[in-house]
Computed example of a mutant assay.
Amino acid sequence: MTTLTTERPETTPRGVREPSIWRLCMARSGVELRQFFRERTAVIFTFALPVVLLILLGSIFDRQMGATGIPSSQLLAAGMIAGGIGSTCFVNLATSITSDREDGTLKRLRGMPMPPVAYFAGKIVLVLVTAVAEVAIVLAVGAVFYDLPVPGDLGRWVTFAWVFLLGVTGCALLGAAMSSVPRSVRGAAPIVNLPFLVLQFVSGIFIVPITTLPQVLQQIGAVFPLKWMAQGFRSVFLPDAAAGMEPAGAWEHGRIALVLAAWCLGGLVLCLTTFRWQGRKDG
Rank of each mutant, 00 (worst) to 15 (best):
P225H: 13
L57P: 00
L265V: 15
F90H: 15
I207L: 11
A176V: 13
A136P: 02
P113R: 10
R183D: 03
S59A: 13
V129Y: 05
G244L: 14
R63Y: 08
N193T: 12
V185Y: 10
I44M: 06
L93Q: 15
V185M: 04
G15D: 03
E252F: 00
W22V: 15
A262H: 06
P115M: 07
G79F: 04
P151R: 04
P195I: 06
G249V: 02
G266C: 08
F275E: 02
A161G: 07
S203C: 02
T105V: 03
I70Q: 05
N92K: 11
A243I: 05
T211H: 06
P247Q: 09
L139E: 08
A140Y: 03
S20P: 05
F145V: 11
G142R: 07
F61Q: 12
F145G: 00
G84S: 05
A42M: 07
L258N: 00
I21D: 12
V236I: 05
V150A: 06
M114N: 07
G249C: 05
G232V: 06
L194D: 00
R8Q: 14
V185F: 09
F145C: 02
I124S: 15
A172L: 14
T212C: 00
R101G: 01
S72H: 01
V192H: 11
T212P: 00
F37E: 03
P225R: 11
E39T: 06
L4N: 03
A222Q: 11
P209T: 04
L154P: 00
T2G: 02
M1D: 06
W251T: 06
L76Q: 06
V181R: 06
T98K: 13
L173V: 10
T130A: 06
T68S: 14
I220D: 09
L272F: 12
G69V: 07
V158P: 01
T98Q: 14
G66D: 10
L268H: 01
P13F: 11
V192S: 10
F237Y: 14
T211I: 15
L57K: 01
L4W: 02
R255Q: 13
I207M: 12
D282Q: 13
A241F: 03
D100F: 14
Q200I: 01
I191D: 01
I60N: 07
V181Q: 04
L148C: 10
P209Q: 10
L238E: 04
A140V: 13
V259L: 02
T95S: 04
L4F: 12
E10A: 15
A27S: 13
A94C: 08
L213I: 09
D240L: 04
T6K: 03
G204D: 08
R63D: 09
T273S: 10
V269F: 13
A82S: 15
R183S: 02
K227T: 14
N92P: 00
D100Q: 13
M26S: 03
W22F: 14
G283M: 09
A82K: 10
A177T: 04
V117G: 03
M114C: 05
S203V: 01
A248D: 12
G283T: 08
C271W: 12
M245C: 00
G167I: 02
I137R: 06
P195L: 10
A42S: 13
E32K: 09
A172W: 12
P247H: 08
L109E: 07
G122W: 13
Q74N: 02
A48D: 04
P19V: 05
